[in-house]
Nucleic acid binder design. Structure first.
Lengths: 348, 348
DNA sequence: TTGTATGCGTTATCAA
DNA sequence: TTGATAACGCATACAA
């Protein structure tokens, strides 16, 4: 049906291989025949067939995207459209296409990846999440298939190419910022502990407190899914403590939004009564009330650099693994202030 | 490198074609040889090569997703992860894979689609947006390539398979709901008028007013991008009118969130001073303050049914085009109430 | 500089 | 019920 290399060859009165070379812009073809062939392509409306090309060259110029479980709430996170944008631009730049696989259960996802990889549908793969004991990652590593993970791998860090923020450091800075404001009762509201990002942020938080000689309080550390209901429980628990925190480090903007709501329902004001700082700096952060002070982790770049380094890896298979750290930045808005001094009216 | 059909054939002592038939589960192969072949496949860890299969069978079992411009704010909308989920499940169900193409400019997107389609990378295509004068849609239609659009096509409605809500009706219902609550000064805050969804919702709003004998006011209709700043301007303008609206129909939850913020800054309470109703019912709607009354348009189903009907179209090319309308439902939360009776304190 | 021939891993058409 | 063999559309080693 479609016009092939042969049709072009016939029209330009050259061999199919010559046409192929013109497409590849092979320097050993004379400008004259190139011109001739290109004209024929133009006239016939020729477009190379990716599939045939892939089969012959054993490379698809497609990269596979592995998403977290579609049932997972993180999937609802505005984080995804943004990484996708970065990924897409990074891939586009080098003329790679994006191939997606999702699934409801971990097994479904795993099956999808196996199909995609073994089936030769893609040249490499990007993991859009990083969690403990990941079967998918183990498979990829075992097969020595090119891949990069967004986020810090849970283990074998030295043998895996990944793109991440320094979440440990970001969390530490954020906590120090709160401490500098005068807070000492600082709680941590995190998400799923299977995600390495949660772990890193928790560790950074703890380190900051320790460095400042502030006692860690077990009750100050809570973990809930990035859900509204989850946030509710966690926050109520925190506030009802005998000595409630005066500041909250929340691992995600969306979650912080939930926290904000719960606090509002309880009649607790932010930042007057309690300060909140969170992560990701998605659009939402500036649209909440009050606008959230949040760590901008440059989600777009996370995606962009992932695509880039995967492609580099695909095209230079023998190069050593790399680790790319995307810078972050605290964006100060209105959700943090110094703690109220205790019972100020008694003084004076 | 990888184990092919030939290796399996050799091991099972049959011809490659037989192996191929076993894969296709051809009924004309004896159970005995099927068993034999399957064992060999198992032992060798055989996985069929999609690319080769695609080339031979002239079908990729992949569907292309065409996203709106990645620079567009709508891309930030939580709408996308959700349609993606639906799309993914719908495709997965029939063992189709997802192939994405994005781009910054319209031309970039167009180029991507042409490549994808002419290059034979996909069997069909889904447009994740619907706007006026779409070059991409024209191309697809012209080439008679299988596609479905999410949203109502701007023209040639009868010749295009699409999946949509009845946005006209939803907007009408919503407005009538407001009217029933006692509102008469109802404004419409919409997004980009190039998007058919905006147009439909606007028309529904107008129809409801007309049906109720309420005069349409030009100043009550504003259009802004789904952005914070946009919302700001629009809302301030509305409120500063001599006769400001008592209720707002907002075309999108995210936008409504922006509106909510602006109102809050201006010291205007929702729903006491002004009612708000919006569309899409994304997670955000229930996390805002106050929780938004919003039209649930079943985003997931929009995606799911799109995938399904595209696949149906691919596999039954001669069937007539179809139109699938996904039901919607108003989810009442706390952003609407009856208007304040004017100057109640003067009475009595 | 260009053409010929072969292979990439399947499916599909004939025969047997 | 099975086996040869020819496509599918392109890339590439080898010739010329």
């Amino acid at each position: 049906m479609a016009v092939t290399i042969k049709d072009v060859a016939k029209m330009a009165k050259v061999a199919p291989s010559t046409v192929s070379r013109v497409i590849a812009n092979n320097p050993r073809i004379s400008e004259k025949t190139k011109q001739k062939v290109r004209e024929a392509m133009e006239q016939l409306g020729y477009h190379p067939n990716f599939i045939a090309r892939s089969l012959a060259s054993q490379s698809t110029r497609a990269i596979g995207l592995i998403m977290p479980s579609s049932t997972d709430v993180v999937f609802q996170n505005p984080f995804f459209p943004t990484v996708l944008r970065g990924l897409s631009e990074g891939a586009h730049e080098r003329h790679y296409a994006l191939h997606m696989t999702t699934g409801k259960t971990d097994d479904e996802i795993y099956e999808g990846v196996v199909q995609m990889v073994q089936g030769g549908r893609v040249d490499g793969v990007i993991l859009l999440y990083s969690k403990v004991e990941d079967k998918v990652l183990a498979f990829l590593k075992d097969r020595d298939f090119p891949f990069v993970v967004i986020g810090k791998p849970f283990s074998d860090e030295e043998e895996i190419t990944y793109v991440d923020n320094n979440n440990f450091r970001a969390a530490k800075e954020v906590t120090e910022y709160l401490i500098k404001l005068g807070h000492e009762q600082i709680a941590f509201v995190g998400g799923n502990l299977n995600l390495t990002v949660t772990v890193e942020r928790l560790l950074g938080y703890e380190k900051a407190l320790r460095d400042s000689g502030i006692q860690l309080v077990n009750e100050y550390i809570v973990h809930e899914e990035f859900l509204k209901e989850g946030g509710q429980e966690a926050v109520r628990g925190l506030i009802s403590l005998k000595k409630p925190p005066t500041a909250l480090v929340v691992a995600d903007d969306l979650m912080a939004l939930g926290v904000l709501n719960t606090l509002d329902e309880m009649g607790i004001r932010v930042p007057e009564d309690i300060s909140i700082i969170s992560f990701n700096n998605v659009l939402l952060a500036e649209m909440s009330r009050p606008p959230l002070t949040s760590v901008d982790i440059n989600i777009f770049d996370l995606g962009f650099e992932s695509a880039r380094s995967l492609i580099y890896r695909i095209e230079n298979p023998r190069e050593p693994v790399k680790r790319i750290i995307i810078p972050h930045k605290i964006v100060k808005r209105c959700s943090c202030s110094s703690p109220k001094t205790e019972e100020p009216q008694i003084l004076s």
